[in-house]
């Protein structure tokens, strides 16, 4: 399933770096935070596997928008827009 633009999503509150060696492209500050799908940017090989030269499945990549103050109440910006892979997103 591909998330449609405007869909409410939540970034998984998962911390693989605490379980061992890994490489992830989902910034720490956005884990567990709700946002909105801006658009599907295309499908790209999963960097979590590429980083270890393992066979990498192709995963949908989205631009997702967040309220900056939902991340930091003291944020001086308004919005954050971040590229996030499908397997890090769940419906909110």
């Amino acid at each position: 399933m591909i998330f449609a633009p405007g869909s409410a999503v939540r970034v998984r509150d998962d911390w693989p770096e605490r379980r061992g060696r890994c490489h992830i492209r989902t910034p720490h500050y956005v884990r567990g935070v709700e946002g909105k799908i801006v658009r599907h940017l295309g499908d790209f090989a999963n960097p979590e596997d590429l980083a270890f030269a393992r066979p990498a499945a192709t995963v949908p990549l989205y631009h997702v928008r967040f309220d900056a103050r939902a991340v930091w109440p003291d944020a001086t910006g308004d919005e954050l827009m971040i590229e996030i892979f499908q397997h890090w997103l769940e419906s909110a």
């Binding site: 060696r21 490489h23 960097p47 590429l50 980083a51 270890f52 030269a53």
Partner: peptide
């Protein structure tokens, strides 16, 4: 060597 491997190496 991919750019992803480079990043992983830097992070290590």
């Amino acid at each position: 060597m991919s750019v992803d491997e480079l990043r992983r190496g830097i992070e290590a």
